[in-house]
Amino acid sequence: MTAQTEPMATRWLGDSSLKDRLIAALPLIVLIALVAVVSAQQPNFLGMSNVRGLLEGLAPILLLAIGQTFVILTGGIDLSFAVVSSLSTVLLALWLPEIGPVAVVLVPLITLGTGLLTGIVVAVAQVPSFIVTLGAMGLWSGVALTLSSASTIRISEGYQAIGWITDMRIAGLPVSALIAIALAVIAAVAFKTLSRGRTLHAMGLAEKALLMSGNSTRMIRIAAFGMCGLFSGLAGLVLASSQYSGGPTLGDTLMLPAIAAVVIGGNAITGGVGGPMKTLVGALIIIVLRVGLSAIGVPAAYEQIVYGAIIVGAVVLTIDRSRLGIVK
């Protein structure tokens, strides 16, 4: 106990740090390689107009993925998030003509509420989030279909309140993507600089220890789902703006790519490891992949197959099996 000067560092270093660092850098390497491959196929891939198109597709996926990151960090998952974004487009289409710009604030607040509600059910009833959000997915989808009479609602009156999201450019780049990226950075900085910024990670790694240190794991979980709901609403704003409409299934197809973005970026599906910047890299990979696939002539219908395979593949590669007990 007294041998403070013992050269322990030599014993500790080298046993895993290099491998860990390589795995951590893998998503970024994949992204760069992907850009290189697609650029070789399409020399103008990194041209301004192409990049602009790329970024226009980024915002909704990235916003959804950031929201999901909060939940996945705690070790849970929110399967209802894409459906909630669809619901928010319907609400926007219904309310913009009535209450105008107020709807732009109100709708994300409502999805914040749906997220908090999910969190409360998960935390208080102590039911796995997978089950609760699977149920919520059906519920909110049904609400969206009922409110919209199962059809797409064009937004004309009041559109200017959300039109800027699609039209505005800063330095030639779409403002939606810039805002989404800024939110990812803000969230990452918050995790880094707040004194309780690593609480979500602790939740995913050692929930019991966190509770036994006097942290309300219940409130933390509810907050994570609330954030997921809020970001789903923001994604809904972007979707409604770019499609000039609200639709009861408008965001549904983003479920797989958004979850894929989270896991391929290097966020552990078991929770505790990752952050919004990893999610940003993951979302960029998904977007480049999507454009790249269509560039080499893969039909859009096959995209979902790729996303599904990515989710499973990324988890197979990165999951820390030593932390799992029995896989269910």
Binding site: T193, L194, S195, R196, G197, R198, H201, A202, L205, A206, K208, A209, L210, L211, M212, S213, G214, N215, G272, V273, R323
Partner: peptide
Amino acid sequence: IEGVAQGMSVQENIFLADPSTVSRGPFL
């Protein structure tokens, strides 16, 4: 399981219960 938060650093564990002494407002 209940004592240390495995996967988090020694420093993070030390301030897991009360980071007030090493905080400035809400920031670390």
